[in-house]
Design a protein around this nucleic acid. Structure first.
Lengths: 188, 188
DNA sequence: ACCTGAACACCGTTCAAGT
DNA sequence: ACCTGAACACCGTTCAAGT
């Protein structure tokens, strides 16, 4: 996916924009919107240059968190090698929660890219990772067959909204409830 | 809560603002933001007048949907009179979903007012209705004891985000998963 | 090819002047 | 007391002119 851009300055600009955006997100208040003009200024480029490289806000956010998302995606198969599917899913949820806590923007970007992908009838790499986990759980009969990756993404999107102050007491607890909802119910 | 405003024109202005906002929301695209200046213009009042009556955007939205929210709140005890708690909760979810589908703004306002209330360590009337339903379910041993109204509000907030096109296939299905997560698990 | 930054459009919010 | 609407502030977005 490396865009071998024809000019060195273009590549350097692109890198500086991403860096400036990362800094701006880290410095900003929890749910403060990323101000694109400020990013351009910090990066030392014109606004038009930012738009040339990242036509939409989501494009920029996705790039900023590309590595984090990649890590998350790569984790799914690794977990499945050493744990039963249900436990793997639980651990994956934990990891998602961690990312989302440290930098709220990760999940915002994840949501943005997923929504974009939804129109294209694909769930993106995160959807693939989830499908892997859900399929494994279905195979062992632990996870209900009528829940897909799309469902789970929508259900755990609340992580974006949780307030910093209530994170510790609520994030894992709520993910636990969702996990229980995804499990196959034994007859009652 | 009736503010017996000292001037007739003030009351009439307030009413016209609410009416204009309702119309604007009904006419606007699904997730289009409500433009306050446009509301003021439609209502035939100055922008300052709108701000005098509704200092924040949430204040206005809450007022627009006051009756809908009241209905939702009043429904909870009625359901509990004729149905077992778990079924009552399921039906209440259905009703919430209906409101949210027809006018997406209902739920946005509900969320806004709840977030406001959260700071004040209260969950508002919606939280009270939910507490009623959850308590009843706990008493019969159907609903897990470690889930409160706050949890449920956060969990079903996804209704705000669902796209019109996927509503029918997804809203009830996802609410069902949440409901299962809220049930007490029989030993497995 | 790519970049710059002035300029435009759009909204939210305030406040001095009116009634 | 309450209202008006011009004015300000702020951002996103475009595009003619530069290199």
């Amino acid at each position: 996916m490396s865009t071998p851009s024809s000019r060195a300055d273009a590549r350097s600009n692109r890198a500086r924009i991403v860096e400036a955006a990362r800094d701006a997100i880290a410095a900003a208040a929890p749910d403060e919107e990323l101000r694109l003009n400020a990013v351009a200024q910090k990066a030392g480029v014109g606004q038009g240059t930012l738009y040339r490289h990242f036509p939409t806000r989501a494009d920029l956010l996705v790039e900023v968190y590309r590595h984090d998302v990649d890590d998350l995606v790569a984790l799914a198969p690794v977990l499945l090698e050493t744990e039963p599917p249900l436990k793997a899913l639980a651990h994956w949820f934990d990891r998602v929660a961690n990312y989302a806590r440290v930098k709220r923007g990760v999940f915002a970007a994840l949501e943005a890219s997923v929504w974009k992908d939804l129109s294209a009838h694909s769930l993106g790499p995160i959807g693939d990772a989830l499908t892997l986990l859900l399929d494994a759980g279905r195979a062992t009969g632990d996870i209900r067959p009528d829940a897909d990756a799309h469902d789970v993404i929508v259900l755990i999107a609340f992580l974006t909204r949780l307030d910093e102050s209530e994170w510790d007491e609520r994030a894992r607890h709520l993910l636990g409830i969702v996990l229980d909802g995804l499990r196959v119910r034994v007859a009652d």
